[in-house]
C-alpha cells in the first residue's frame, strides 16, 4: 500500500502533464479554445434566466444555475470516467505506471474546468447581489465533491474495462441520480413534506448534502441540519475509499483485458 502511494507520488509530474493534455485536447481545433470554459456557464445562466422569465417554476435562478453548474462537474467526470482507462488502452498496454493516474488526471482536468465555471457563477451571484453564507467552507465542499467524483470515476473506469455495458447502465443511473438530487429543486421540497426517515434516505445521496452545503455557503440557504449534511459528506468519502479499494484490486488485470 505504501509503495503504491509512493509510486503515484513519484509520477506526480505525469498527473500534471495528463491534466494539461486533457484540457488541451478538449479545446483543440476549436476557434475560441479555452474561452469555452467561461462561455459555457455564461450562456447556461443566460438561457435559464430567459427560460425562468417565460415559464413559472417555483425556483429562484441563483438556486437553479448553481445546482446545474455544480452537478455538471459530477456529470462530466462520470462521462469521462467511462473512457479514462479504455480510451487510454495504448498507454495502459504499453507502459507501466500507476493506473490510478488516469482517472485522477481526468478528474483533475474536470476540476480545473469546474473552477472556471465556478468563477463565472461567483461573478454572477455577486452581480445578482446574492446573500453569501460561510464561504470559507467552500474548499471543504469542493474537496468532498472531488473525492466523490474520483471514487465514482475509479469504479466506473474499472468496470468499463471488464463490462462494456457500463456505459448504458451509467446513463440510466445518472438520469435517476439527477432527479434524486436537489439540482433543479431545493432540498426544502423534501424537508417540508416527508417523515424523518425519508430525509435520512435523501441525504444518503452524497450529492444532496454537497448541493445543500454549496447553497448554504453561496446563498445562505439553511435547508437541512448539520447532521444530514455530515451524513452525505461521510457517504461521499466512503465512496472515495471504496473506489480506491476496488480500483487497486482489479488494476493488475487491465493489461490483459485491453
Amino acid at each position: 500500500m505504501v509503495r503504491w502511494w509512493r509510486e503515484i507520488f513519484s509520477k506526480r509530474e505525469l498527473v500534471w502533464i495528463l491534466i494539461e493534455r486533457n484540457l488541451k485536447i478538449r479545446y483543440k481545433n476549436s476557434f475560441l479554445g479555452f474561452f469555452w470554459s467561461l462561455l459555457g456557464p455564461l450562456s447556461l445562466i443566460a438561457i435559464y434566466s430567459i427560460f425562468l422569465s417565460l415559464i413559472r417554476i417555483p425556483i429562484a435562478l441563483p438556486t437553479l444555475v448553481s445546482g446545474i453548474i455544480i452537478w455538471q462537474f459530477l456529470a462530466m467526470c462520470m462521462g469521462d470516467a467511462l473512457h479514462s482507462i479504455v480510451g487510454n488502452a495504448n498507454l495502459v498496454t504499453k507502459a507501466a505506471f500507476p493506473r490510478l493516474i488516469l482517472p485522477l488526471s481526468m478528474v483533475g482536468a474536470n476540476a480545473v474546468n469546474f473552477l472556471f465555471s465556478f468563477a463565472v457563477l461567483l461573478a454572477y451571484l455577486l452581480a445578482a447581489g446574492a446573500d453569501f453564507g460561510p464561504v470559507l467552507m467552500l474548499p471543504v465542499i469542493l474537496l468532498t465533491q472531488t473525492a466523490l467524483c474520483l471514487g465514482m470515476a475509479l469504479m466506473i473506469g474499472a468496470a468499463n474495462v471488464f463490462f462494456r455495458d457500463t456505459e448504458h447502465v451509467l446513463s440510466v443511473v445518472m438520469l435517476a441520480w439527477f432527479f434524486l438530487s436537489p439540482v433543479i429543486y431545493g432540498p426544502e421540497l423534501v424537508m417540508t413534506s416527508f417523515p424523518r426517515w425519508v430525509h435520512i434516505l435523501f441525504f444518503l445521496n452524497p450529492m444532496s448534502g454537497i448541493l445543500t452545503a454549496y447553497r448554504g455557503a453561496l446563498l445562505s440557504q439553511q435547508a437541512a441540519g448539520f447532521g444530514l449534511v455530515a451524513l452525505s459528506f461521510g457517504v461521499a468519502w466512503a465512496i472515495f475509499l471504496i473506489g480506491l479499494g476496488v480500483f487497486r484490486a482489479v488494476e493488475p488485470r487491465f493489461g490483459d483485458e485491453l
Partner: peptide
Amino acid sequence: AGFHPDLTGRENVFLAGAIMGL
C-alpha cells in the same frame, strides 16, 4: 504507441518522459 495524435511532437515527448518518470 503512447503518443496522442492531436498533440504535437514536443508535447508528446514530454508526456512520454513523464510516463517514464522524468
